[in-house]
Amino acid sequence: MRWFTRWYGANPLHLLTMLGCFALAGYAADKLLPHHPIAILEWLVGAVVGHDLILMPLYTLADRSAMAVFRHRPPRLPTVPWINYVRVPVALSGMLLLIWFPLIFRLPSRFTLLTSLPLDPYLWHWLAVTGALFLLSAVAFALRLSLARGRREAPRHAGGAAGLPQRVPAGYPEQPRYPEGARYPEQPRYPERERYPEQPRYPERERYPEQPRYPERGRYPEQPRYPERGRYPEQPRYPERGRYPEQPRYPERERYPEQPRYPERGRYPERGRYPEQPPYPLRPRYLERPPYPEQPPYPERPPHPERPQPARNEPDSGPSWWERGV
């Protein structure tokens, strides 16, 4: 049994259910197919391919294009995210077209003969409904916009795709709202790394065996560890995340962006800004570490024994080989 489960990938009940499914589907298909086997198979496959591989990519593309078109046109006035006020009426109108396209485009040739009803009105009905949808959407957007501009705390979005925020709104100091395009913009590249190219490749380093290797510290001495950042991609379950309980709106916080919580704060209400408060019990770990006492200053580093130092400020000795005509 264990062998079977390992080979098959599920328990035998799964296989039984599947066989039942294929027996029923096969029986029905056996009745269905003799009529027009090729055409029906084309329809079944076409149903899946047509929807999943043609229709869906098409409307995804349309959606992305709509946002990309306006990506680089920041509005002069504060705005609110507008993409859904376009997306919804377009999608609903498109869906009506998808369902009723034969009537709208007057395709059923026998419709009038059969029902004594005219085919003409459907196109106008669809256009009217589409117009009404856009009108409703525009009214809703105007209301939302006037509300947002009327309020003092209206987020002054710099604009961008879909009018979505580019800058961090008040109250969320460290967590920008994922500016589109760049995912996790704070994570990927550390330009500081390029500033210390001479550090890693020096074999002289072995001469300072007492120098402890602080890989994180050496390269990013000023960057404490952001616990939020490290967790992000594999974040397991944050039921509390939607509520942001860990992010209270402390205006003081912007001065300590890397220090999440000050439980001690309540004890010193009169101090206010804590600029000189000597011991930080919750200071990041790197500050508690001893400061490189034995690290000698770099200028005294002895020259590399094997690598000859390039002569500086000296003209090249003699003409080069092509000048000599070799």
Binding site: M18, A28, H36
Partner: peptide, 27 residues
Amino acid sequence: QTYYKFPGSFYTLHFYGAWVFIAGFVV
């Protein structure tokens, strides 16, 4: 919409097609 472009009788297609669909659905 009386747009009979499907291959064959509607009754046949829709009835047996429903059984194929429901076979997938019940698993």
